[in-house]
Every structure is written in structure tokens, then in C-alpha cells.
Nucleic acid binder design. Structure first.
Length: 595
RNA sequence: GGUUCCGUAGCUCAGUUGGAUAGAGCAACAGCCUUCUAAGCUGUGGGUCGAGCGUUCGAGUCGCUCCGGAAUCACCA
């Protein structure tokens, strides 16, 4: 409609003022709710042609449109804004077209489908997942869904940080203090068990440092010479050398962690097409670094560590291999990127990684370009904000880490309590009830996280549990369940919606408002895909649900006597439920049929 | 100190390329269930959009300066 209006206005300016206008001067937007009308032309930019007041210009163009364009049923001019009213018929016809479309995603398909890798999750195998990882997983997974929905060929990847000095820490701690404890013997989830030893390492390590400092050793010296740290460094060297005993222990402890992660991933509803392990890719990275050294792209320091000089790129010196020859984080990321390109020939490689690593990705891209990989341009750091507590960052030392498994459990528990209180599910089996609690609890959590602009830091207050009223996941799920309920009732009454006889119905204001919102769905998905923002879809779904609830409150659907109107409202409700289902599906949120 | 990001109602957040009187939810208060699910709907109060200057017919949005906060600049990941 906007496009047609633009053409008509162009034509009007041509005929009335004898001038050619460029598209960007014709600004059409939706009319604000407090004014009468559907679309608004901002007339200020056209004053240079009309050489008249904004009011006169608006009126002249308005008159022209009403005379020549039957879909424009009326207009009003307020200040420099020409508010155009579109006829009900046009809206109903448009609605009919929407209903007839096979898929609600039909209109947001990209012209050129790209191969896009989305890397998300990226856990360390030394501790369990926490709230920060939840944001990462939900964003990454939703991004995958959104990009796929617009027609791209998307591959979900995960890089597991399964090697490195931090992994050795939990291994050393387990060796020294573990007494052979296993997930089976302790009854602990594997990732939590390994995490326990990582925490223990830090504790014991600090104690050692303190002892040394008190004995007169310097702080730095103490950190380096503490027996636990020495043991850890030795273990890393042994690991890189392939020492059998170390590798076996490493495999064993990692297997515990993976079993634990799998449970959490499953609960969150995320998965991966291809999992990379740094224990594989760091070697590729090392080779790349060494060959770049040969080509004089890198340099070797006196202590034989290897560096890149990125000062010409406005960056710094960057270490790529330690003096003892072991790899750092950057080394393996180089390897992973090259590995991936060789396997997938991606157009884009999106890293869902927190904004604390902005610098890292700048360096990674600069390095790859320096090394002559032109595809490095396709590397995109999807930099999302941290999840903070009211008092600031989560800190393991202060025990403020919000554990992922605990949080998911709490959410389901809250859903259970609220649902049982409302008591609408009494005729369900225990199993069915649990499934609904799960959907609601996770819906609340996922929506809470995803409705926020991913780029921004967000605050989570553990003291206030996540809400189930207002702008929340359960609110939208509830709206959906309500519509489903209407349809169950309609079936009982022997009424089936008929999408082919809509035009006979007279429609009201709320109904047009709903149609307007439904119409914006595909555009919203396109914007979300282009801006990598699930939040855009979350907020859209909320707006749609709110609008529907108003309609639902103000109008009777099945109680309507006029059959054409009743049918229209049924079809309208049906489309709303489908859009809500699809939209929330892009966020990875399931919808219960009843709640 | 350098670089980057952020500052919108008491709290948590929206605010497409600059457009009209800046919006939601939570919390508070007041209403609405003999009628399709009240996890809902309606209303009231609550704002110098961190501050200032500039560009513009028009700035929460763009530019500059300052204030406040965060991240990063590791032989950590």
C-alpha cells in the first residue's frame, strides 16, 4: 500500500505542481494512534514544490488522492501531516490475501540465499553453564531460526574450549584432592562435578600464594612458583605432547562435562549441526602461525614466542604462540576459522560471543586478512551484552553465579505453582501438566532474555522472580491458548471458519488494528534477520498479543449473531494464533494449547 | 591513559532510515468475571530522554564538548 501511495503522490505532485520528486522526499509512515487515519504523508519535504503552507499542500494532495484513488476514503491535515484514511474494503481484501498465503514467511525471503555459520554456546569444559551462557545459547539459536526463516542456509556450530590452561586446573585439582570422585559416586551432574574442582583449584592456589607471600616471596613470583600452578603448566605441556596418562584423564573428565551439557542443552531446546573442539583446531592454528612466520607476516621474539605486529591496523602487538611453544586462545580461533571455511565455504561466519571480546575479534579479523584470507570479511562478531546482577557482574568468588540448571528448574517450579493456583488444568494427566509447566517456565525465561536488545547489557534480579504477567512469555502463550480455546468451543458448536467469504463482513476498529499488525509480521522478520535481533520479534509478538486481547475483550467471537462477522472474527483469530506461533517459534519458545 | 559501548518513568525495557503530545510492563491506587480462559481488560498518578552547544522547518534519534557507568588494551579464555 505504501508503495502504491508513493506512486500516486508522485503523480499528484507532477500534475499539480509540475515537478518530479525523488522517492526519499515522499515519506509515508503509519498514522499515530491518537489521530484519525491509517497512513500519513509528511508534507514538509514537498513544500519546496508547492511553495505553499504545509496545511494547504496537504489538503491539495489529499483531495487529489480521494478523487483519483478509491482505496483512499478520506483524509485530514494536522500541521504538516496528511493523514490518509484507507477504506475498510481494502483492509479486508488485504486480510483475505494474507490468509490465503501458504506460509507466513513467504514475504520475507531473501533474494540471495547465503551459507551462514552461526557459532554459539562455546562453553569451557571446566565449569557448568550459567546465566550468561543461557543468553548466548538463546540468542544463537534464535538467530539461526530467524536467518533460516528468511531463506538462508544456516549451519549451527559450537566450538568447545576443551583444552588450555584452565582445563588443566580442574584436572590438577581433581588429581590432588579428588580421591577418585566421579559423577556416579557423587551423584553430581558431570559438569557441576568438574566445576567443583575448578573452584577448589582457585581456592587452594590462592592459599599457596598467600603462604609464599608471607614467607617473603614477591606477589608475581609467588603466582608463578606456587606448586599448583607449576603442576598445571607442566600438565598443559604434557597434554600438548600427547602424554597418555594426562590425555586419558582429560578425556574422562571432559566426557563427564559433555554428558552434563547435553542435559542442559536439551532442556534449553538448542542443538548443533557441527561441533568443533579446540583440541583439534589449535593444531591447525599452530601450523598457520608457523607458516605465516615463514612468510614474515609474524615475528619471533628473543624468548622465542611468536607475535603479530598489528600497529599498522591501529591495533597492538599480539601474542600467538607462547615461549614454550603452546597455543593461546587466538591461535586456535585462527585454526577454527580456516577449518570452517575449508569445510563450508561460508559467506558469513557469525560468532555469538559477548562484547567483552570485541577486541579479540577485531584482532582475529585483522590477522586473517593479513594472512591473505579474503573471506575474513565474512567474519561477523555478533557482540551481545553481559547479563548483570543489580550489584554488577556475576562473580564466582562471591558465589553470585546464577547456574543455568538451577534457573531452569526454578522457572518450571514457578510455572507449576502459578498454574496449580489458577487450577485450570485439573483434567490433565500429570505428564501433560508437567509438559505445560515446562513450556511456560522456559517460555518465561526465554522471552525475558530475548526481548532485550542483544547489544545491550541487561540486568537480572534473582530476588524478583521472572514475571508471568504483562510483557512476558506466558502472556503471549496465554493469548495463544485462549484462541485455541475458542476454536475448541467452535468445534463443539459445529462452526468452522471459512476463509473465502470474508469480504461480506463489516469490520470494526480493533479488527483493522489487528490486521495492520498482522500485516507487519513479515517485515518484522526481515528486520530481525537484517539486524540480528530476536528482540524485534519478541516485542512484535507482545504487541500483537496485547492487541488481540483488547479485541477479545471488546468483541464477542462465537457469540456474534451475524454469521459473516462471526466467521471473519474466527479467521482473524486463527491468523493471529498462527503468527504468534510462528513468531514465538523463531525465538525457540513453544506454545501450549491450554494453560 | 588509549579504544569501544552504554545513560529514556521508582524498577525492567521499547522507541524502523531525524517527524506530530516520548511508549509498554512491573510496582502503587481505582474499577471490570451468571457471557468465547481475569496469566486478561479499563482508568489514575509518575519524564528537564545524563548535561550543554550545534546542524535542521523539525532531534530521544545526527555532530562536538563535558559528566556518569561498563568492557577491553594478559605468555587468561
Amino acid at each position: 500500500m505504501e508503495i502504491v501511495l508513493k506512486e500516486k503522490i508522485k503523480e499528484a505532485v507532477k500534475i499539480i505542481y509540475n515537478s518530479d520528486v525523488t522517492d526519499e522526499l515522499i515519506q509515508i509512515q503509519e498514522t499515530r494512534k491518537d489521530f484519525k487515519g491509517d497512513f500519513t504523508l509528511v508534507v514538509f519535504p514537498l513544500l519546496r514544490f508547492s511553495k505553499n503552507t504545509p496545511e494547504k499542500t496537504g489538503e491539495t494532495i489529499g483531495n487529489y488522492l480521494v478523487d483519483r484513488f478509491p482505496s483512499v476514503s478520506g483524509f485530514n491535515v494536522i500541521k504538516g501531516f496528511l493523514n490518509l484514511e484507507i477504506s475498510d474494503n481494502w483492509w479486508v481484501a488485504y486480510f483475505e490475501k494474507m490468509v490465503s498465503e501458504k506460509s507466513h514467511l513467504e514475504n520475507c525471503q531473501v533474494e540471495v540465499a547465503e551459507t551462514i555459520l552461526v557459532e554459539y554456546s562455546s562453553p569451557n569444559t571446566n565449569k557448568p553453564l550459567h546465566l550468561g551462557h543461557i543468553r548466548n545459547n538463546l540468542l544463537g539459536n534464535s538467530l539461526y531460526r530467524i536467518l533460516s526463516a528468511t531463506g538462508h542456509n544456516v549451519v549451527k556450530t559450537n566450538i568447545v574450549n576443551d583444552r588450555g590452561i584452565h582445563i588443566c586446573k580442574s584436572m590438577v585439582a581433581w588429581q590432588n584432592f579428588g580421591k577418585g570422585e566421579t559423577p556416579q559416586s557423587s551423584g553430581m551432574k558431570g559438569d557441576h562435578l568438574v566445576g567443583k574442582y575448578y573452584v577448589l583449584f582457585e581456592k587452594e592456589y590462592r592459599a599457596e600464594i598467600e603462604k609464599l607471600v608471607q614467607a617473603g616471596t614477591g606477589e608475581e613470583e609467588a603466582k608463578n612458583s606456587a606448586p599448583l600452578m607449576k603442576a598445571t603448566r607442566e600438565m598443559l605441556l604434557k597434554w600438548e605432547a600427547g602424554d597418555i596418562e594426562v590425555v586419558e584423564l582429560w578425556k574422562l573428565m571432559n566426557s563427564w562435562v559433555y554428558a552434563g551439557f547435553d542435559v542442559t542443552y536439551k532442556k534449553l531446546g538448542v542443538d548443533f549441526d557441527k561441533i568443533y573442539y579446540e583440541s583439534d583446531t589449535y593444531k591447525v592454528g599452530k601450523d598457520i602461525v608457523l607458516s605465516a612466520l615463514k612468510d614474515n607476516i609474524l615475528y619471533r621474539n628473543d624468548d622465542s614466542s611468536i607475535w603479530a605486529d598489528l600497529t599498522p591496523d591501529g591495533l597492538d602487538q599480539k601474542l600467538l604462540l607462547r615461549s614454550d611453544g603452546t597455543a593461546v586462545y587466538m591461535t586456535q580461533d585462527l585454526g577454527t576459522a580456516v577449518d570452517r571455511f575449508n569445510e563450508f565455504r561460508f559467506d558469513k561466519n557469525i560468532y555469538v560471543v559477548g562484547n567483552e571480546q570485541n577486541y579479540h575479534f577485531q584482532v582475529l579479523k585483522a590477522l586473517l586478512k593479513r594472512m591473505g584470507y579474503p573471506w575474513a570479511d565474512g567474519l561477523i562478531h555478533f557482540s551481545y551484552g553481559m547479563v548483570e546482577l543489580p550489584e554488577g557482574r556475576m562473580k564466582s568468588r562471591e558465589g553470585t553465579i546464577v547456574d543455568a540448571d538451577d534457573l531452569i528448574e526454578e522457572m518450571q517450579e514457578t510455572a507449576r505453582v502459578v498454574s496449580l493456583e489458577l487450577g485450570k488444568l485439573s483434567d490433565f494427566s500429570e505428564e501433560e501438566k508437567e509438559d505445560i509447566f515446562r513450556k511456560i517456565g522456559l517460555g518465561a525465561l526465554k522471552y525475558y532474555i530475548l526481548k532485550v536488545d542483544p547489544r545491550k547489557n541487561m540486568t537480572f534480579n534473582p530476588a524478583e522472580s521472572i514475571d508471568f504477567n504483562g510483557n512476558t512469555g506466558p502472556f503471549i502463550q496465554y493469548t495463544y491458548a485462549r484462541i485455541k480455546s475458542v476454536f475448541r468451543k467452535a468445534e463443539q458448536m459445529g462452526i468452522t471458519p471459512d476463509a473465502t467469504i470474508l469480504i461480506e463482513a463489516k469490520i470494526g476498529i480493533k479488527e483493522i488494528e489487528l490486521i495492520k499488525l498482522l500485516r507487519k509480521f513479515s517485515e518484522t522478520v526481515s528486520i530481525a534477520a537484517a539486524s540480528y535481533s530476536p528482540a524485534v520479534i519478541a516485542n512484535y509478538c507482545y504487541e500483537l498479543a496485547r492487541e488481540f486481547n483488547q479485541f477479545y475483550h471488546d468483541y464477542s467471537i462465537l457469540g456474534e449473531e451475524d454469521q459473516a462477522i462471526r466467521n471473519f472474527r474466527l479467521v482473524l483469530s486463527k491468523l493471529t494464533s498462527e503468527i504468534l506461533f510462528t513468531g514465538m517459534g523463531l525465538l525457540g519458545i513453544e506454545m501450549p494449547e491450554r494453560m
